[in-house]
């Protein structure tokens, strides 16, 4: 039975903890002068990016290479794919070259599930449509766990996720992971940017929650949302939902400020993040490598952490 990482809910709480524990080992590898181990030597990881995402692709490529896996990258625009070949044809062709794991980023929700129907290889969801981005959620959990020294779980941790929840795979996966680890999540968003149905409590008043949170998670505000009558203007969005200097001054010293990137400076991030005490945004990026190494090792590795012990003598 091939194992895959498609969503946080399929991974479950135990799975999240397993990956975060493995990520500790990977972080140790990454601190070495030569951060490379032979754990996945002989394995082939194919990065299949149907949507442009240089950051996530580089993160996965780096993770695979530090584990000594061979990598290939297939970047293609969805429009050219639609001109004849079905997604299934494309997948079956690449799988025939011998692939142990596909890392797939796709603009359409559900594409990684379809991929899983058509290949025996492991599938890692690197973001699908508005639906899920489980490795982002895992690196977020790893970042909070490390920063707050909360290995046991997030009971009592209060999280506000602010912005465009409806169109955000990050919000869906990250809120699910926070909740599985025991945190309380509140969505802060105008009604137009909330999904039609959601389990999390929600408010449209950021100022009401600002004094009662431990984590402030800002989402990227897409500029084109304005043209769809979802918000009247970016200026008004910043006024109601942006992290302005006045709001930053009200944040407790302990509050972590997070963002999945890329940031819209002057929109959701209306202060210089470098001046925020609890800014862990660059830590999120760095932790992304360790967490993605952990995911690939969990799916393709020997199961024994001893394979991480030795370095590579090139």
């Amino acid at each position: 039975m091939t194992r895959s990482l498609l969503s946080i809910s399929e991974l479950g709480e135990a799975g999240i903890r397993r990956i975060l524990d493995l990520a500790d080992h990977m972080a140790e590898v990454n601190r070495r002068p030569n951060p490379k181990v032979p754990a996945l030597r002989g394995k082939t990881v194919c990065n299949l990016f149907f949507e442009d995402s240089t950051r996530t692709r580089l993160s996965f490529e780096t993770a695979a290479k530090r584990l000594s896996a061979d990598t290939m990258t297939f970047a293609v625009s969805q429009s050219s794919l639609n001109k004849g070949e079905s997604l299934r044809d494309t997948i079956e062709t690449i799988a025939a070259m011998g692939v142990d794991a596909f890392v797939i980023r796709h603009g359409s929700s559900g594409a990684p599930w379809q991929l899983g129907q058509w290949t025996d290889a492991s599938v890692v969801n690197a973001g699908d449509g508005w639906h899920a981005h489980p490795t982002q959620a895992l690196l977020d959990m790893y970042t909070v766990r490390t920063a707050l020294h909360r290995r046991e779980g997030f009971d009592g941790v209060r999280v506000a996720i602010v912005g465009d929840i409806k169109h955000s795979r990050v919000a869906r996966s990250t809120s699910a992971a926070f909740r599985l680890l025991g945190a309380d999540v509140t969505f802060v968003s105008p009604r137009t940017l909330l999904p039609p149905v959601h389990d999390e409590p929600s408010t449209a008043r950021l100022d009401d929650v600002l004094g009662d949170i431990d984590v402030l998670y800002l989402l990227r505000m897409q500029r084109e949302r304005m043209n769809e009558a979802l918000v009247p203007s970016l200026r008004e969005y910043t006024m109601r939902f942006g992290l302005t200097p006045a709001r930053a001054a009200r944040l407790g010293e302990h509050v972590l400020v997070m963002h999945p990137g890329p940031m819209n400076r002057g929109v959701e991030m209306a202060v210089d993040p470098a001046e925020l005490r609890g800014n862990v945004i660059t830590k999120q990026v760095a932790n992304g490598i360790s967490v993605r190494m952990a995911v690939l090792f969990d799916l393709l590795g020997s199961g024994s952490e001893s394979s991480l012990a030795g370095g590579i003598d090139a």
């Binding site: 929700s109 699908d128 639906h131 899920a132 795979r169 869906r172 999904p195 039609p196 149905v197 959601h198």
Partner: peptide, 15 residues
């Protein structure tokens, strides 16, 4: 269909 299921699946809904 626009409802709980589309919200969960991250798919645009048809109300």
């Amino acid at each position: 269909h626009e409802g709980a299921c589309c919200s969960h699946l991250g798919l645009p809904g048809w109300p």
